[in-house]
Design a binder for these strands. Structure first.
Lengths: 100, 100
DNA sequence: ATTAAATGTTTAAACTTTTAAACCAATAAT
DNA sequence: ATTATTGGTTTAAAAGTTTAAACATTTAAT
């Protein structure tokens, strides 16, 4: 592993962090099955309270794996995982190169 | 994302968790550069105390990304990331299929 | 303007993780 | 056998995370 690989590791940190929680994994699952969902729609499907869901959505948004679109009073959340997938691809390539 | 993808997500949890910490990333870096290292050798390179390093090594070992070989009083830690890389590959494939 | 609906924010409590200090166990060398 | 070296374990404190309750904000409809 070189400095280059370490950089990729560090860049991936926020995504790895955000993915390593089953509640957040569930939310991503819901969004992958539904295109766009509001906080309340996600809460219905989840075991968490609305504020907890809202909190996890914030984390997911900060990590760049979801995005929001406001329509009236409702906020529709949807996946935006292009960057995350790119990063994970790079990470995987680095791991295969240096760690096997 | 289907149930199948969720399973992969869940299986990856321990690896994602263990990778989403910069101290542990550092340890993996040291091991990728050095083949085999003792706790003390890792501690020299790290900013952590020896018990802290020992603790993180235990987590890494439980997640299956490293292994130990004892030679006399010394324990040599080394990478064993084949499984982790396989899992991450599957995860990535699921993400590309269902989340883009 | 008031009210209702949807959602975000703040705060406090519970829980988990991380760390270091002190201690213990095993091996090897004298 | 005694001692030194290596490394694991336990414990307690500190820091961080997660959750829910109460409160605040924003938009839409009457």
């Amino acid at each position: 592993m070189g400095k280059q690989a370490l950089d990729i590791f560090r860049q991936s940190l926020p995504i790895l962090q955000v993915l390593s929680d089953s509640n957040r994994q569930d939310i991503l699952l819901f969004l992958s099955e539904n295109e766009k969902l509001t906080v309340n729609e996600i809460t219905e499907r989840s075991k968490l309270s609305r504020p907890a869901v809202s909190h996890h959505l914030k984390l997911l948004k900060n990590a760049g794996v979801i995005n929001v679109e406001q329509i009236g009073t409702q906020r529709y959340y949807y996946l935006s995982m292009q960057e995350a997938v790119e990063l994970l691809k790079k990470l995987l390539a680095a791991l295969e190169r240096d760690c096997l």
